[in-house]
Design a protein around this nucleic acid. Structure first.
Ligand code: FES
Ligand code: FES
Lengths: 140, 140
DNA sequence: AAGAATAAAGACTAATTTGTCTTAAAATAA
DNA sequence: TTATTTTAAGACAAATTAGTCTTTATTCTT
């Protein structure tokens, strides 16, 4: 819905890897089993993350992938951008390609605060803090 | 991004119609010109809104479409649902088909407040109040 | 009654996304 | 070295979405 299937698979895979207590090397076959995603398709999706440095891949026996950066250095927005080529920063509710306020669509004023929170969520959520609910954050 | 092109076209068309001072009958050809959307494609999209009663269509010379209900009776969520068949109420950030809290994905806790605001936005925004910014609403 | 304007409907095409299959390349294990 | 395990890469197929084209039915105008 918000992003493509490919994006969703990427996010789920990255979270799975972040959940490994050590930054272990996990074969994509295992990821595909655990997350119930087609192995060959997942391989292609994760290649895009490897290209951008968010994953490191190892060929051969005992090979697989592991996080390429510290968990707090990888945001959901990074993942979305790597896989789908655009971020969640300027999404217009009516499909305007640039929701920048210069050429606002009729929904712009009302949509903007929602859009802002959405963009912040993707940018500020990373593989370290994704477990912390935003409500907890407000309580503290 | 959030919805399909068809959805975006539907929302833009409905807002255009709501902006007519009277609830005039507007030919789809005019909508397609003003909004720069393919005429034949737009015709098919708007047919779905006519089926659900959100539009009334008139064939023949001087024909066209007009709103089928009072503007405040038509929410963005109604439009999305009519055209794409699903609403914005339970959207999981990782593609989980039912984001209901029973089978939460790893992002659920953190995502939920955002999801709530998003759902409320689509449900509470209608063709009458879409111009009112949510910031204004808070100030009052 | 005849012609023009308009939505409806259905078959078709094009583009994009999703997914499969096969082969190659690299690394480990025996 | 040879076999096995794994990612990489590219061609292909299937599904979904977007868009076109043509015909029909309806309504207004003259
Ligand atoms: S231009 Fe549409 S929401 Fe900003
Ligand atoms: S199940 Fe994924 S956000 Fe609720």
């Amino acid at each position: 819905m918000f992003c493509s299937k490919a994006c969703e698979y990427a996010i789920r895979s990255m979270i799975f890897l972040a959940d490994q207590s050590q930054n272990d090397i996990v074969p994509i076959s295992k990821l595909s089993q655990e997350l119930e995603i087609s192995f060959t398709f997942l391989t292609k999706v994760l290649q895009q993350l490897t290209e951008k440095g968010y994953l490191i891949s190892y060929k051969g026996a005992k090979g697989g992938v592991c996080l390429g950066k510290a968990p707090e250095e990888i945001s959901l927005d990074d993942i979305v951008q790597a896989v789908s080529g655009h971020n969640m920063k300027s999404i217009c509710a009516t499909g305007n390609p640039d929701c920048d306020g210069l050429h606002p669509c009729p929904l712009h004023d009302r949509w903007q605060p929602i859009q802002k929170m959405l963009g912040d969520f993707y940018k500020e959520t990373n593989l370290e803090n994704y477990k912390v609910s935003l409500i907890d954050k407000l309580i503290k």
